[in-house]
């Protein structure tokens, strides 16, 4: 390199204060936990069906709108606090999980079931799911038009507009600073998101590991035919798998809104690729892998955006996906929903 070269865009960021680094690490973990929760839907379905649930991104997106609408319905005010705020958030969580779960079941029914019964090749199922995915996302993006057709514009005005722009989520909890050490900050919302995401994942893992239904999921993912012979109802296991993935995506959607604050009809697309990356990174089909993959991705993305500028965040995670697929396609923890262990 000649000494007269213009300063590289990296130059100003070379020396990162410790507090910045810690902040990046902490928010990276928060975002990563959300990715991990979202990734469960990919991991569970892949574990059981060996198929990518392409429409899972829209399952998440619909859940996020359910949460937003619940807040609109409750007429919540930002940062109002108090017990009501906690109740509101729980209701929003319920709404998001219910809608996401329902959409996930719908996807299973419409896009996958027939093809599974016909034993179609995976690419056909993928195309089917791509169709479902774009429909789900565009219907949300055209909700104002659809409401107009149905003459519900007056009633639903607040819910359907603006259909193609960002929609704000009203968080009734105040976002207090819990800790501030030399610039390193921990905010209450972040902490709640992180803890809630981890709790959901532990709950899911325990469910899959200990419950009778969960054992069915594990059995099918290990050996579908043997499980069928042992009397496991495969159809129900598949439905349950989609439902669980959907519920987790709904929860992830609410946490995402608490952390980021906005959603839109195509929010699932990039986030879906990232959650999928998290699933692959940890070892698709592996529940703990999804968490680990999410956390690693969240950190990589945050450090990467510090290095290259936040506009390149998505590029960093994409490159990470390619690198993982090339060098460790089975992920960090290996692919084993069957064992449901790390």
């Amino acid at each position: 390199m000649p000494g007269t070269s213009p300063p590289s865009p990296l130059e100003p960021n070379r020396v990162v204060p410790l507090s910045t680094f810690l902040n990046l690490t902490f928010t990276g973990l928060v975002v990563g936990a959300i990715y991990g929760l979202f990734a469960l839907g990919y991991t569970l379905v892949y574990g059981v069906l060996r198929l990518i649930n392409f429409a899972h991104s829209e399952v998440f997106m619909w859940g996020s709108f359910a949460a937003v609408w619940m807040m609109t319905l409750l007429n919540a005010r930002a940062g109002s606090g108090g017990p009501a705020a906690v109740l509101y958030l729980l209701l929003a969580l319920l709404a998001a999980m219910a809608v996401s779960g329902a959409v996930a079941l719908l996807v299973e029914r419409v896009a996958y079931r027939r093809l599974r019964e016909k034993k179609s090749p995976p690419l056909v199922a993928l195309i089917s799911a791509i169709g479902a995915s774009f429909m789900l996302s565009e219907i949300m993006g055209l909700r104002d038009r659809i409401a107009g057709w149905l003459n519900l514009d007056g009633v639903l005005g607040d819910y359907v507009r603006p259909a193609r722009e960002n929609t704000q989520f009203v968080n009734p909890l105040p976002n207090a600073t819990l800790l501030d050490v030399g610039g390193f900050q921990v905010r209450s919302t972040q902490l709640i998101v992180l803890v809630a995401a981890l709790a959901m994942m532990i709950a899911l893992e325990q469910f899959v590991r200990r419950s009778r239904l969960g054992r069915g999921v594990r059995a099918v993912s290990q050996d579908a035919e043997a499980a069928a012979l042992m009397g496991v109802d495969q159809k129900r296991v598949v439905q349950l798998t989609f439902l669980l993935g959907g519920l987790m995506a709904g929860a992830a959607a609410l946490l995402y809104l608490m952390h980021i604050g906005v959603t839109r009809y195509n929010v699932g697309f990039i986030l879906g690729i990232k959650a999928f990356t998290a699933a692959v990174l940890g070892g698709i089909g592996n529940i703990r892998g999804a968490l680990l993959g999410g956390l690693v991705l969240g950190l990589a993305e945050n450090y990467g955006s510090q290095l290259f500028g936040s506009a390149w965040k998505d590029v960093v995670s994409f490159l990470l996906l390619v690198v993982v697929l090339l060098f460790r396609p089975t992920g960090l923890l290996g692919e084993s929903l069957g064992k449901a262990r790390a």
């Binding site: 419409v110 896009a111 027939r114 093809l115 179609s120 056909v124 199922a125 195309i127 089917s128 791509i130 169709g131 479902a132 995915s133 774009f134 429909m135 565009e138 219907i139 055209l142 038009r145």
Partner: peptide
Amino acid sequence: DFRVVVFGLLLLLLAN
């Protein structure tokens, strides 16, 4: 404006 919806539906139906 609805073409993405319509062709998404078409993909879904054709695949099935």
